[in-house]
């Protein structure tokens, strides 16, 4: 068996709205290996979260999906909703951004953490309860016997975040999709989240981190994919990526982080409805030429992928 856990091929998602059709994800192709931490970075509103929802098959009902998603060799994008329910939470789980919104306020935390176990592992209520306590303890939620009977509002923010990770990992998934785990979180909490994720990753779980936080992605990831205006424009191993980003947008993005002088990227973010012709970055690109008005190819260079005419 190959090491590939998740394979996403030619996935596109469009969402019709009153203002026009949003091209949220365009032609996304990448794969994540077992035990790999893979980050998808990009600006807010560039379609990263939609890609995560597309993998989980939890898109808004009016979204149009095309392409293929394979998980452990199984084409999950072709499964029926009923079969997909057996995959969600079991093989691939998601961890949402805001624990206060993502946990049900009216249900005890323990019950919520136990749900994936009961849904997927076929274990009794008592077994699920003791496993839940062990899981809570594993993530420093103590005393677990007391905490599992409490409600989300009785938890502190950090504790609830850990409970959410306990919930996501409850049925021992192979892959966790974490959507903006560090959004709106201060530096200390960010460090805690990184520590918890690293703990889970060291247990052998692969991650798809969806984040706009370049620093967090750098600290966590094995590989990085850069998303711009619904397209993945570069995929690379972490070290070479941060040493030498290939795509002009990646270069501009890294130049915009505080450590590198905070140089803003000129020009406004493009509309997701009327996307620019050709290369989507060309209106803001310092290296643009005439050929950038046609769609750039995805070029492979030393195992890296970049969607840019400069390397064609």
């Amino acid at each position: 068996m190959s090491d590939v856990l998740l394979k996403v091929s030619d996935v596109s998602v469009t969402i019709p709205t009153e203002q026009g059709t949003v091209h949220a994800v365009d032609d996304a192709t990448f794969s994540i290996n077992k035990r790999e931490v893979f980050s998808l970075i990009g600006e807010s509103g560039s379609g990263k979260s939609i890609l995560g929802q597309a993998i989980m098959r939890l898109l808004p009902p009016n979204a149009m999906f095309s392409g293929k998603v394979e998980l452990e060799g199984m084409e999950i994008s072709a499964l029926s909703e009923k079969e997909m329910q057996k995959v969600r939470g079991k093989t691939v789980a998601s961890i949402a951004q805001n624990p206060y919104l993502a946990m049900n306020p009216g249900i005890r935390v323990g019950t919520q953490v136990a749900e994936p176990m009961q849904a997927h592992l076929g274990i009794s209520k008592e077994d699920a309860k003791s496993r839940t306590c062990r899981a809570l303890k594993y993530f420093d939620i103590i005393p677990p016997e007391v905490r599992e009977r409490e409600y989300p509002f009785q938890y502190s923010g950090g504790m609830l975040q850990r409970a959410m990770v306990a919930m996501g990992t409850a049925a021992d998934p192979e892959l966790i999709i974490a959507d903006e785990p560090t959004k709106g979180v201060d530096v200390l909490k960010k460090r805690n989240i990184a520590a918890i994720f690293q703990k889970v990753a060291s247990d052998g779980c692969a991650f798809l981190l969806i984040t706009h936080d370049v620093g967090f992605a750098r600290a966590m990831s094995d590989r990085i994919a850069v998303n711009y205006c619904g397209q993945i424009i570069e995929i690379a191993e972490k070290e070479p990526f941060f040493k030498e980003p290939l795509h002009p947008y990646s270069q501009a993005l890294l130049g915009a982080v505080p450590e590198r002088g905070m140089h803003p990227i000129p020009g406004p973010s493009p509309s997701m409805i009327e996307v620019p012709e050709g290369c989507r970055f060309h209106p803001r690109c310092p290296h643009k030429t005439d050929r950038c008005l046609t769609n750039p190819p995805v070029v492979e260079i030393n195992g890296r992928f970049v969607r840019c005419w400069m390397y064609a």
């Binding site: 939890l58 009923k82 969600r88 939470g89 949402a96 919104l101 946990m103 049900n104 749900e115 994936p116």
Partner: peptide, 24 residues
């Protein structure tokens, strides 16, 4: 959002509606 979380756990839509939505 917690409804989406419940779906993400692989719960059936029936359970999501009855257990997670209706009581609230």
């Amino acid at each position: 959002e917690y409804i989406q979380t419940a779906r993400g756990k692989g719960l059936s839509e029936k359970i999501v509606i009855i257990r997670h939505a209706l009581k609230n």
